[in-house]
Write a protein that binds this DNA or RNA. Structure first.
Lengths: 121, 121
DNA sequence: ATTAATACTATACAAAAGTATATTAATATT
DNA sequence: AATATTAATATACTTTTGTATAGTATTAAT
């Protein structure tokens, strides 16, 4: 893929970058925005898979928010809800390939945050 | 830097990643979250530097939101407001080094968005 | 039969984010 | 003197996001 800046300079005549890039960026923002999405994804990366584990692992989240966010993440194909038909029933939330790959984005975000802090101080 | 997943496995005993990483991630989220921050940064990368240019370049943004967001981005050292004391006065918003470096994060986000769309379809 | 655990949902509310519309202050143009 | 341009700010409002608290359904344990 070309970089954003290259695309920009290539497309100066139109003064626009491709619509597919704008949509891709919007998709990514929608997936990670809000207070709880990244904490949930981080917890799942840590192997916390059950509703109760997540409730305990994520400070101050309420069951209502956890339920709501899990549903959204499932709709966006970031996680999959697996029902294991045992007694008692076991429910696990697992990251999809897309979800797992967010770890790389998280790395870049952490990296930027650390560098930015150095720049500013 | 180590990756998020490596850190996680290294620190399984504590079941936590370093607080500095959590803060760095929160910083990054604060800088880019909301409806207008990335469009503004993208416009500045395109060389749209004046209030009016930005108003025209960013579809549907109101002067109120542009003014508010520019102030926040300035407070976060992502942009600098430069006053050129000509007549008429010229005001330019310019990306700082931190601001420019967000282009790389934007690239990664676009890349993730494109790949995710392929995964899902 | 009572209590507890898991995995939620319902209702009401508060706070944050964003929108719509009007207005301002300084200067320049006609 | 009236109008236009640039760079905003003010006020009121709506929408979205998040919180607080309580309750439900299923199953298991005592």
């Amino acid at each position: 893929m070309n970089s954003f800046k290259e695309i920009i300079s290539q497309e100066e005549a139109e003064q626009q970058c491709p619509q597919s890039y704008v949509m891709a960026l919007t998709d990514t923002m929608n997936v990670i925005s809000g207070k709880w999405k990244l904490p949930i994804i981080a917890s799942l990366l840590k192997g916390k898979n059950r509703f109760k584990d997540l409730l305990e692992n994520i400070e101050k989240i309420t069951p209502r928010m956890l339920s709501k966010e899990l549903k959204e993440l499932e709709m966006n194909s970031i996680i999959a809800r697996k029902v294991y038909d045992q007694t008692p029933v076991l429910i696990k939330y697992e990251l999809t390939a897309s979800g797992e790959s967010l770890a790389d984005l998280i790395d870049v975000m952490i990296d930027w945050g650390l560098t930015h802090r150095n720049n500013v101080l």
